[in-house]
């Protein structure tokens, strides 16, 4: 665990403790389970976003992909009676295809990630709305998919399965980013693409892999969201989710310049954001202030982070000066 993560964990604990003291309902099993469920749902795509941000990229179409994939998944099952495992396979292939497309546009056509994924945000949202004729994609009354619902929206010993999925993905993501060669290369490409290519790393391939991974996790997240809401209203489903993801990653120490961040950090970032939402609800703060609270906390976190890097640079300078003093006083 890095120092930054410990700081963030302390912040999460402090905020949690304050809310718990001010409103004991925070610790009620039902509130904890609901909050945990939201953490799981939001956490899946936040980790997805983190893998793109670490390459110094950005993925703005996450919310729209969640809407589009959600609409297609529900509609395949409800209107076309496709067995759900087949529907799941179809939407996962589609998600990966979206990731490949983004990666290809960014690496081969040299488009900026911001522009590519902004266009994605508009296009996928538009297609989702057109597909349902701006209606709602939902399951017909009385339809029942016990297996699917158990897997995606069920609970084991009171723990929502979204949380279990999130934890499994988080552990896998931790190993991927911090222990595998691919992870090392993701960090390298994000930090210094030039030195990475001079080290024989195929930077384009790494970047494409990041977008594909991001889209894959977003697809999983979309299925969880669709089964959580049970009906998908494509004009609002998933709105602004990409921004939640970016916020969680930035809180977790991912720099938008790339090459930095830890999975533990993004997990803590997701938890902090949901606890803050919960805080707004439980403390009777007008819910219209919801975004303002979140924005302020993120801003404070980022300011603390830049101060930390300035301190690090100053320390390096001091070390260099000290080495000079040791190496014999400069002669006149």
């Amino acid at each position: 665990m890095q120092k930054k993560d410990i700081g963030l964990a302390t912040l999460v604990m402090t905020v949690g403790a304050i809310v718990a003291v001010m409103n004991p309902r925070f610790l009620s099993p039902i509130n904890l389970a609901n909050t945990a469920n939201l953490i799981g749902l939001f956490g899946l795509f936040s980790i997805a976003e983190a893998f793109v941000i670490v390459t110094a990229g950005i993925e703005l179409s996450i919310g729209s992909v969640i809407a589009l994939i959600g609409v297609i998944f529900v509609d395949l099952i409800a209107s076309f009676s496709v067995p759900w495992p087949v529907a799941l396979a179809i939407v996962m292939v589609l998600s990966v295809a979206i990731g490949l497309l983004h990666g290809w546009l960014i690496t081969r056509l040299k488009l900026q990630p911001f522009v590519v994924t902004l266009c994605g945000l508009l296009i996928y949202r538009g297609i989702a709305r057109f597909y349902t004729r701006d209606g709602t994609a939902g399951f017909t009354f009385g339809s029942d998919f016990p297996m699917l619902e158990y897997l995606v929206a069920g609970r084991t010993a009171g723990v929502p399965h979204s949380v279990i999925a999130f934890l499994l993905v988080a552990v896998a993501a931790w190993f991927l980013l911090h222990r595998t060669v691919l992870g090392r290369h993701l960090l390298a490409v994000g930090k210094n693409p030039e030195a990475a290519s001079f080290s024989g790393i195929d930077t384009n391939r790494i970047i494409i892999q990041a977008y594909v991974l991001c889209a894959f996790l977003t697809g999983i997240s979309a299925v969880f969201f669709a089964m959580y809401t049970r009906s998908v209203q494509p004009s609002s489903h998933g709105n602004f989710y990409e921004l939640y993801g970016i916020a969680a990653a930035v809180l977790g120490g991912f720099s938008l310049r790339g090459g930095e961040g830890s999975i533990i950090g993004v997990v803590l970032g997701v938890i902090l954001l949901q606890v803050l939402q919960n805080l707004v609800n439980l403390l009777g703060i007008p819910s219209s202030l919801n975004f303002a609270v979140m924005g302020s906390v993120i801003l404070a976190g980022v300011i603390a982070d830049t101060q930390f890097s300035r301190y690090r640079d100053a320390r390096r300078q001091a070390i260099a000066m000290a080495a000079l003093e040791d190496g014999g006083k400069p002669q006149a």
Partner: peptide, 16 residues
Amino acid sequence: TEGLFLDFSITENIAM
């Protein structure tokens, strides 16, 4: 800029 990842550790640089 081309030879090193300045923020990465010496070990990580050598092993890259």
